[in-house]
Simulated assay, not measured.
Amino acid sequence: MIYILQGELYVGFITTNNKLVSKIVKAGEVFVFPRGLAHFQKNTSKYPTAVLAAFNSQLPGTQQFAAALFASKDPVPKDVLAQAFNIDEHEVEMIRAGLNNCLELQ
């Protein structure tokens, strides 16, 4: 769940039927993400947005999907990623290289 203190976010999640549910959430509004579904938030304001976030557990954990799928220490096989994302194995390698470069900079 998020509560927008200042600014605004474009938020959304993907249902189990692969349907996007999204909206712009502005200061003073709340948005609840269903548990276990892939979701996102993007600042749409020219300025930083301040948000209070609440999780449904003491140890909810978060995971960045791109890093989890393409830059894991025990890599997901290239053919699996290529088939899942309808890309070729060369594109998988390009994504991995780009993500690994970004993660090294952090």
Rank of each mutant, 00 (worst) to 15 (best):
I2L: 13
I2D: 04
Y3L: 02
I4A: 02
Q6A: 13
Q6G: 00
Q6Y: 02
G7M: 03
G7N: 00
E8A: 09
V11I: 10
V11N: 06
G12S: 05
F13H: 14
I14A: 06
I14F: 11
I14Y: 07
T16A: 13
T16Q: 14
N17S: 07
N17L: 05
N18S: 09
V21Q: 06
S22P: 00
K23V: 15
I24F: 01
I24N: 00
V25I: 09
F31Q: 02
V32S: 04
F33E: 02
R35S: 01
G36R: 12
G36P: 01
L37H: 14
L37I: 08
L37Q: 11
A38C: 08
H39E: 02
H39R: 11
H39I: 05
F40D: 00
F40V: 01
Q41E: 12
Q41P: 00
N43S: 04
N43G: 02
T44F: 08
S45Y: 05
S45W: 02
S45L: 03
Y47D: 14
P48Q: 15
T49R: 03
A50L: 12
A50H: 07
V51K: 01
V51Q: 06
V51R: 05
L52F: 12
L52G: 04
A53W: 02
A54W: 08
N56Q: 14
S57I: 08
S57C: 06
Q58N: 14
L59N: 15
L59G: 08
G61N: 15
G61Q: 12
G61R: 09
T62R: 15
T62A: 13
Q63G: 10
Q64N: 15
A66C: 15
A66F: 04
A67L: 13
A68Q: 11
L69W: 11
L69R: 12
F70I: 01
F70T: 01
A71F: 06
S72V: 06
S72P: 06
K73M: 04
D74H: 15
